[in-house]
Design a protein around this nucleic acid. Structure first.
Lengths: 179, 179
DNA sequence: ATCAGCATGTAAGGCGTTACATGATTCA
DNA sequence: TGAATCATGTAACGCCTTACATGCTGAT
């Protein structure tokens, strides 16, 4: 019976920082957040509507100057309270669906070369993601005195540490398989 | 339009190793696989039915001796081929929904102590999972000559490497926040 | 002219969870 | 007797993705 939609918290979190349109929110989710969460228009717009009905967000008067109408949203007091309640709730469902690991686990069904190739593909993806994260990190280190940026920085180094661990594992795994 | 249900592959992968009932499959998923994939009865039984219709698995004659009837399934040639096709497909959607990171990212909205506490809760969970994985690892190292166990072993050390990375990050993060 | 990007939204449908329904056996 | 475990399945419902519908502006 839930009302447990996490996309609501993502939107509320972003709105707590600044008023945004659904389109803006989508762009932000596709940025650094995309390393640990995803969201599509098909989930963002309905979530905004629902939250407006529940008075967690408020529509600002739409801007019709230039282009299609733009509807920016502002977080309400009730919205901020909801966000804080969620932040203070210890329980956090960290659900991973790691298809790479699944393929690895069942690798014995097929030839060894198949698994080896899958590891290499994974390694390449990780390397690319890591490169992006390192650029984020460098830019952030120039502005670390800003308290707001600190939290962002922590998620970025989380990604870097994790991905570096993955790369180490890839090397190890290839060696073990070759034996 | 997809027919892209990954639970099918989990089931097929497990059946490739040995004939099992839906109940058995659930237990196996709740074991070591649970670190990177989840599955409930509500998804397993319908998946088995569908795959039987599509001739990927075959019902073995049910065993009525003792307790409720037991229906074991066996993977067919078509099932094995489907599994291999998936294994050989490079694309792997590694979707993470990391609520801990989400809370961290929006931590600036609330007091610092809230984030600090969330990190500590996360740290404790990781520590516990790590302990379980290390037991798996020890047991596996006694039977590493078995080629089948090698793949299992690789997933376990993946978990260990990853979680150790998380712990390192937790320490770092607490320090940065305290500054 | 045409295409990419801006911008909002709906519709269909897949995937999955939780809770429920059912019922036998084993053990305290 | 009652709880736990074994065992299969269905129903209701929630969440999300993809694809579609719509239409403006600015650059090529």
């Amino acid at each position: 019976m839930g009302k447990d939609r996490k996309i609501d918290m993502v939107i509320l979190g972003l709105l707590a920082h600044e008023d945004s349109t659904g389109y803006d929110i989508k762009k932000k989710i596709d940025g650094p957040i995309s390393f640990f969460w995803k969201g599509s228009f098909g989930s963002i717009y309905p979530a905004l509507s629902d939250m407006e009905k529940n008075e967690l967000v408020k529509k600002l008067k739409s801007d019709n100057s230039g282009g299609r109408e733009k509807i920016a949203y502002h977080i309400t007091k009730k919205g901020t309270d909801t966000l804080k309640t969620w932040l203070r709730d210890e329980s956090a469902g960290n659900e991973l669906k790691y298809e790479t690991l699944l393929k690895l686990f069942f690798g014995g069904v097929d030839e060894k070369s198949v698994t080896l190739h899958n590891i290499e593909v994974f390694e390449e993806q990780v390397r690319q993601s890591l490169a992006v994260l390192k650029i984020y990190k460098e830019n952030l280190e120039k502005a670390l005195d800003d308290e707001e940026h600190k939290y962002y920085y922590l998620t970025v180094i989380f990604g870097i540490d994790t991905y570096e661990g993955y790369l180490k594992w890839c090397k190890k795994a290839k060696k073990i398989l070759a034996e």
